[in-house]
Design a protein around this nucleic acid. Structure first.
Lengths: 232, 232
DNA sequence: GTCAACCTACCGATCGATCGGTTGTTTTCT
DNA sequence: AGAAAACAACCGATCGATCGGTAGGTTGAC
């Protein structure tokens, strides 16, 4: 089992990509809020705790953000934007084969949840705390990301490379297993985030009943470990 | 997509099995707390809201439970006990084939998350809010349930019926996809909870690279596909 | 048969603490 | 000098929890 089981998630450090982190104090507030929201939940973290962790008084926060909710809204937006961006980029770099696209999607999906676990936990798990006004844009991003996977799967079925009892359930299951990674992954895990993403991409292909690719030069070493190839 | 996306979970009714629901007022308090904890989180639900939903003043709650945390502790315990009990029972009713055992486990796992979504969401997602003293027993239950699946998978690998790159990741992925069901399933979903559980059991077999069973009378229609029933 | 004792269930009032947020002032940096 | 940043002080509201007390029913000794 994963140690420290009484914590909400295993990660201990809040990371924000430089391109998403505002300059100066705003960035510090955002990163500190991310950590506290991830560890205690939005309702469980107070602005005084945030301020103290930043090194200032709670009143000073309001010179940088108009409300606690606006901080959460920005974190949710950043999380889902990064999620969509990394998936979009991965899809652009792979070919037209639905199998490659699923691998690209799931790899990006899982890697993001492993590399930015706190951002993923907050952006997904605290989104409901936002008013519809502040959360609308983020919901739209989220739906787009889900739709992308569904489109890939449906196209794969039409081409006969996927066999699955229920498309929506498959998409939900693949999304779910990746999302959960954010709760247990730490850099101390025996596998790198990239290797975890590789394995999960293989899981997704299996789950979709993917047929063996015909185009690959090498005889498809998809089943990596353990030994034998699984699932034809 | 699932409607009502701004809610934390799709379910709207809190259900507690009669054998878990205390008699009288204690039972009402527990069920009402379950609903509010599921919808707003433990920190986001106040004892005054709970009391008002029950139909009494907050002071009266303390005649039935010593603290807010004790209410959560009981809900977490009930949730994980029911989870373990339903899995245990399913395993007793299936044979010795690891494939059957995985099907039994995942079916029970998913069915419980679909039938008692609020209980699952609270027992899993708010467990971290408990002090180590009040949460210890529940953590133990949780670890036992996970261990049971890991044992099944390892035994299946030893017998050569499963092929999987990484046992722990497989167990984590299977657990994750089931847990997520609690967030989107409602009785209005196009499939019954039993059918959803069937499909997820098939997903798990695929994910584990299960070889076709030799004992089955019918020629293993596991790959069902596209529409037909999953899981043979 | 009655009345004091006891019990369960609940309530109004209130506790100290903390909540998110506002105001006006001071400090800091350029 | 002037703008940005942080401050102390404070707001009304709400937090979880405690208190003494009350209404209504049951019990049992006399």
């Amino acid at each position: 089992m994963i140690p420290g089981a009484s914590r909400r998630l295993a990660a201990t450090r809040a990371t924000l990509l430089p391109e998403h982190k505002p300059e100066g104090t705003r960035g510090v507030i955002l990163e500190v809020s991310l950590k506290l929201f991830a560890e205690r939940g939005y309702a469980g973290a107070s602005i005084r705790e945030i301020a103290e962790a930043v090194g200032m008084k709670s009143a000073s926060l309001y010179a940088h953000y108009p409300s606690k909710e606006h901080i959460l809204a920005e974190l949710c937006r950043i999380g889902h934007e990064e999620h969509r961006r990394s998936i979009q980029r991965a899809l652009l770099e792979c070919g037209a084969d639905p199998r490659d696209q699923v691998v690209a999607y799931v790899h990006a999906h899982v890697a993001m949840h492993a590399q930015f676990p706190m951002l993923a936990v907050v952006a997904n798990g605290e989104l409901h705390a936002l008013s519809s006004e502040l959360g609308a844009a983020t919901f739209e991003l989220r739906n787009q990301s889900i739709q992308m996977l569904e489109d890939i799967v449906r196209r794969g079925i039409e081409r006969g490379v996927f066999q699955i009892p229920h498309v929506w359930l498959g998409v939900a299951a693949i999304g779910a297993m990746g999302m959960r990674v954010a709760y247990w992954y730490t850099p101390e895990f025996e596998l790198s985030s990239q290797r975890v993403a590789d394995v999960y991409a293989e899981f997704a292909l299996r789950l979709l009943g993917a047929s063996a690719p015909v185009h690959s030069e090498a005889p498809a070493d998809r089943s990596a470990a353990q030994s034998g190839p699984a699932q034809g």
